[in-house]
Structures are given as C-alpha cells and as structure tokens.
Amino acid sequence: MKAPILIIKKLPAAGMAIFPFILVKSAYLKKDQEIINHEKIHLRQQLELLILPFYTFYLFNYLINLIKYQNHDLAYRNIIFEREAYKHETDLDYLKKGNWFGWLRNWKR
C-alpha cells in the first residue's frame, strides 16, 4: 500500500494515519519502517471499516478502555486496532499476506 507521508511537526504522536495519509512528526521518521508499517496497518483497518466507522469505533473503544483501566496509556495500547498494529509492526510482509480484519482476533485476550 502506497500512502503519501506528510511531516507535521506539532503532531501529538510519532505517527498517525488519517486516510489516505500517514502523518509523522519529523523527517527521519519517514524512514522508520516499523512506524510506517504500523500506520499502514491502520490505513488497512480504516479501509476495512469504510473509513468513518473506524474513527467512531476507535474512539468508542478508547473511552471504554479508559473507564476500564483508568489510565491513558493502558487504554490506548488496548484499543483493538492498536493491538493488531503493535503486534505486527515489525512484520513488514504482514499486509502482503492478507490478514484482512486481523483486529477482530484481538477482540478478547
């Protein structure tokens, strides 16, 4: 998947995927294969859910996790979409292998 990568210096995270773009905080992160792969996984997830529902479900899952864990970092890391992206960010062939709707496997631990 080829996605335009934009540098946004005031980005609140190292990287972010907002379909169809990958946003990174600095130029050197454009070459960080793991961050780019992580964000490409999010782009795939956004396509799987037809983009807008992804953002709604992502926010809803975060808010439920925030109530559950009472901690931003734990709530964020346990969003089902983040679980898939973090789990496979080092596998640069993950998206080529298919794995559509892989985030569903992270529904329950």
Rank of each mutant, 00 (worst) to 15 (best):
residue 1 M to Q: 09
residue 2 K to Y: 04
residue 2 K to D: 12
residue 5 I to A: 05
residue 5 I to E: 01
residue 6 L to E: 13
residue 6 L to A: 13
residue 6 L to R: 11
residue 9 K to T: 10
residue 11 L to I: 13
residue 11 L to A: 12
residue 13 A to N: 15
residue 14 A to L: 12
residue 14 A to R: 11
residue 17 A to I: 10
residue 18 I to L: 09
residue 18 I to K: 13
residue 19 F to A: 04
residue 19 F to R: 04
residue 20 P to Q: 07
residue 21 F to Y: 08
residue 25 K to L: 06
residue 25 K to V: 07
residue 26 S to Q: 14
residue 26 S to T: 15
residue 27 A to N: 08
residue 28 Y to Q: 14
residue 29 L to V: 02
residue 29 L to M: 08
residue 30 K to N: 03
residue 33 Q to C: 08
residue 34 E to V: 01
residue 37 N to V: 00
residue 37 N to L: 00
residue 39 E to S: 01
residue 40 K to V: 02
residue 40 K to T: 00
residue 42 H to E: 02
residue 42 H to C: 03
residue 44 R to V: 00
residue 45 Q to V: 00
residue 46 Q to Y: 00
residue 47 L to V: 04
residue 47 L to F: 06
residue 48 E to D: 05
residue 50 L to Y: 13
residue 50 L to H: 10
residue 51 I to W: 10
residue 52 L to G: 10
residue 52 L to S: 09
residue 52 L to F: 07
residue 52 L to K: 15
residue 53 P to L: 11
residue 54 F to V: 09
residue 56 T to K: 11
residue 56 T to H: 14
residue 56 T to D: 12
residue 57 F to H: 09
residue 57 F to M: 11
residue 58 Y to F: 14
residue 62 Y to H: 14
residue 65 N to F: 04
residue 66 L to P: 09
residue 67 I to V: 15
residue 69 Y to N: 02
residue 69 Y to M: 01
residue 69 Y to W: 07
residue 71 N to Y: 04
residue 73 D to N: 12
residue 73 D to L: 13
residue 73 D to C: 10
residue 75 A to V: 09
residue 75 A to L: 04
residue 76 Y to N: 10
residue 76 Y to S: 12
residue 76 Y to G: 14
residue 77 R to C: 08
residue 78 N to H: 06
residue 79 I to Q: 07
residue 79 I to E: 02
residue 80 I to A: 04
residue 81 F to R: 06
residue 82 E to K: 15
residue 85 A to H: 09
residue 85 A to W: 06
residue 86 Y to C: 12
residue 86 Y to D: 11
residue 87 K to Q: 14
residue 87 K to M: 13
residue 87 K to P: 05
residue 88 H to W: 13
residue 90 T to K: 13
residue 90 T to A: 09
residue 93 D to I: 03
residue 93 D to N: 15
residue 93 D to E: 12
residue 94 Y to S: 06
residue 95 L to W: 02
residue 95 L to M: 03
residue 97 K to N: 15
residue 97 K to L: 03
residue 98 G to P: 02
residue 99 N to M: 01
residue 99 N to G: 02
residue 100 W to E: 06
residue 101 F to D: 06
residue 102 G to C: 00
residue 102 G to T: 03
residue 103 W to A: 03
residue 104 L to T: 06
residue 106 N to W: 03
residue 108 K to P: 02
residue 109 R to W: 07
